[in-house]
Design a protein around this nucleic acid. Structure first.
Length: 423
RNA sequence: GGCGGGGUACUCAAGUGGACAACGAGGAGAGACUGUAAAUCUCUUGGCUAUGCCUUCGAAGGUUCGAAUCCUUCCCCCGCCA
């Protein structure tokens, strides 16, 4: 059995561990868990790192548990956050938890012959815990000194916004999760982002105090791009793993646009390609960077993993056409197929034919306001059917509608919007 | 509960009766250069029927020819004390 820790180290998935012996312990098959926060109804690209780590564990013969934080999501993890977060309603959390289950179910192997993955929801055990029982049974084992010393708490207390008791208590809940999974599933390892260190060690301490047993934590580095930005944001928007929130096309494009400096690192983290294959791609990148072969491979692998072959094909075809230049010679049906994935809007004929491009771009939702559309045209950044719109007076003419039904609007280099004429 | 500090646009943060749609920075969008990269430079960044009009500075009232700025009440946050 290959040691998962070596793999994590080699691929840049290892940040720290709570005990130097953890490598030895992982030589035997074990049970590992990682938690996912349901603050949104879909996991984001950032969570993908943790998912990959879990997948490596499973491949190395460990049983993996993905925990959806239905209960902890009600509270809000203060780790790594500079201000108190807005509480979600029970309904929101329940809906989000469901979405996350759905996401996760596509990345982990639940039908594995020997070590099938499982998903649990901590609301199942934390939800029925009474406050008094929790304070007596769990709270008793946490010392104020240690809790106040926790980095996430210290930072927040020193900050302007302070911290509520609710968020302060968060670590106890996550600590109890570890205890519960230890008791019920024999779980002895927890992995999580480096911001989870405090929460993980809280769990380890709790298990040691109550059960006298040693459990372990491994943290994964927070993935940043070379500019130091937290990974997973595209034009200010988070990149989601759910096709309904981030289309396969946008998802593909996000990875395709990876900077040279990051590509090799990302290949190691986000794909299962062998290190040799990655080294080869890296060499190719040095030789002819304009080919973007490494980026292409990265985008391809990740998109296939997340959206399947069908999603990848749509993304590839759309990318080819969109970055190939002219849309001439394509039929409305072709365009609809290619843009199946790109934001589109259906507008009444009267609002399109003869209207100014500015009005159409705003009505279609490409621009937030007419003023924004006007500024876009003035700076030369708005395109109709891949042809730059010359001035603010320009109109959409009937002959601009492909097959009398469809027009393609674009803002800048890469934001496409399809306009369909209704009726 | 008492005392003090604070709430300005996506964020941080100036502005303490008119020249304020509100300095500056970051972020974001666009352009140029490129390789759908990075770096750099430039422009833009409340809305509109647009040399003007409308709506914004925690909320609601009030004073004034005129309020982000002054007054009143309320809400929220931070700190110290109880």
């Amino acid at each position: 059995m290959e040691n998962v820790l070596d793999i994590m180290r080699a691929r840049g998935l290892f940040d720290d561990c709570t005990n130097p012996d953890v490598g030895e312990k992982l030589a035997e098959p074990g049970v590992v868990y990682a938690g996912f926060d349901p603050s949104s109804n879909s996991l984001q690209a950032g969570n993908f790192v943790t998912i990959m780590a879990l997948a490596h564990f499973q491949r190395c013969g460990h049983k993996v548990i993905a925990l959806a934080g239905g209960a902890t999501g009600m509270i809000g993890d203060p780790s790594g956050k500079t201000s108190e977060r807005t509480l979600l309603t029970q309904e929101q959390v329940a809906a989000n938890t469901e979405g996350i289950r759905e996401n996760l179910s596509r990345f982990l192997d639940f039908d594995h012959p020997t070590v099938p993955a499982v998903i649990v929801n901590n609301n199942d055990w934390l939800g029925e815990f009474s406050f008094l029982d929790f304070l007596r049974d769990i709270g008793k084992h946490f010392r104020m000194g240690a809790m106040l010393g926790r980095e996430s708490v210290r930072a927040r207390l020193a900050s302007e916004s302070g911290m509520s008791f609710t968020e302060f208590s968060y670590a106890l809940l996550q600590a109890y999760d570890f205890l519960h999974l230890h008791d019920t599933a024999g779980c002895r390892f927890q992995i999580g982002g480096s911001d989870q260190w405090g929460n993980i060690t809280a769990g380890i301490d709790l298990v040691r105090k109550l059960r006298g047993e040693e459990v372990y934590g491994i943290t994964i580095p927070l993935v940043c791009d070379s500019a130091g930005q937290k990974f997973g944001k595209s034009e200010g928007n988070a990149v989601y793993l759910d096709a309904r929130k981030t289309s396969p096309y946008d998802f593909y494009q996000f990875f395709f646009r990876t900077t040279d400096a990051d590509v090799a690192r990302f290949l190691k983290i986000f794909t299962f390609l062998s290190l040799d294959a990655i080294a080869e791609l890296e060499a190719g990148l040095k030789e002819s960077p304009e080919q973007r072969a490494a980026q292409r491979k990265l985008a391809e692998e990740v998109t296939r993993a997340v959206h399947g072959d069908a999603g990848l094909n749509v993304a590839l075809r759309a990318s080819e056409v969109l970055f190939g230049g002219s849309i001439e010679g394509l039929s409305a049906t072709d365009l609809a197929g290619i843009f199946a994935d790109v934001p589109s809007a259906e507008l009444p004929r009267a609002e399109v034919a003869g209207a100014t491009v500015i009005d159409v771009a705003t009505a279609a939702g490409l621009c937030q306001s007419k003023g924004a559309a006007r500024r876009l045209v003035q700076s030369g950044g708005l395109y109709l059917n891949n042809v730059r719109v010359p001035d603010v007076e320009a109109t959409v003419n009937p002959e601009d509608l492909v097959d009398d039904a469809v027009a393609v609007l674009r803002s800048g280099k890469k934001n496409f919007h399809l306009v369909k004429v209704a009726g």
